[in-house]
Amino acid sequence: MTTATDIDRKSLTEYLLRLGDTSLILGHRLSEWCGHGPVLEEDIAMSNIALDLIGQARLLYTYAGTVEGEGRDEDDFAFKRDVTDWKNLLLAEQPNGDFAATMVRQFLIDCFNVELYTSLSKSTDTELAAIAAKSLKEVTYHRRHSGEWIIRMGDGTDESHRRVQRALDDHWIFVDELFETDALDAAIVAAGIGPDLKSLRPAWDSMVDRVLAEATLTRPQTDFPRSGGRTGSHSEYLGFILSDLQFMQRAYPGMEW
């Protein structure tokens, strides 16, 4: 395995955690639908997509533990960090709401993931490139699934159109964060490990606009974009997710089964 050497371990670990955290939290949110889906097929679909995302998180966490070199494994990252240590996108932790809200959240991130993993599959870091190439195959199917639902609901009944438009309006304040960059991203770009996130926006815009047009939905505007997830400033929701996700390890530290 070749790891790019012109970046320090701490930065690369942090970058991998940002990626893994978004996957795990989004996967956890989808898993909350298990047994509650609007129809059996969607219950199964959301659980399967959750599995893909949680699987991607495991690969990223395992690699982060190797890079960090302090003996932490996937479970340490998932179960033994508190809210401010989590670096996921705020969009991923937003509540499921109704099915339209879940599909909008999913679609916005799926479109981002397709561009992100396309780019990361060419990373100079061969392990990350391998994880990305594998994940890309999966997220293209996720996007196909969520994109079709956006079209079906947007161009559906008055009620489904109203709900999906409302979900879009509600979630749009979290979109800018997807493409936000800081000093860590600059170091990642300089080392050839990952893309300049801003450069992913035109392709994302173009896919989202195309689907919204087909779905007869209106692209929202926002004057108050929210961000902070990638540096550990979260909405109130993450703490509740962690209290569920981490309960067993918190109540019975070190338990295994």
């Binding site: 097929e41 199964i44 893909d52 199917y141």
Partner: peptide, 29 residues
């Protein structure tokens, strides 16, 4: 691919080409 056409999937039981997709995900991913 999001706007790609679905493939023509023949029925494994009777071989008919007249089939339709019900859901993008089945019992496994």
């Amino acid at each position: 691919t999001l706007f790609g056409a679905d493939p023509d999937v023949p029925c494994p039981h009777c071989g008919s080409a007249a089939t339709e997709k019900v859901s993008e995900f089945g019992s496994t991913a």
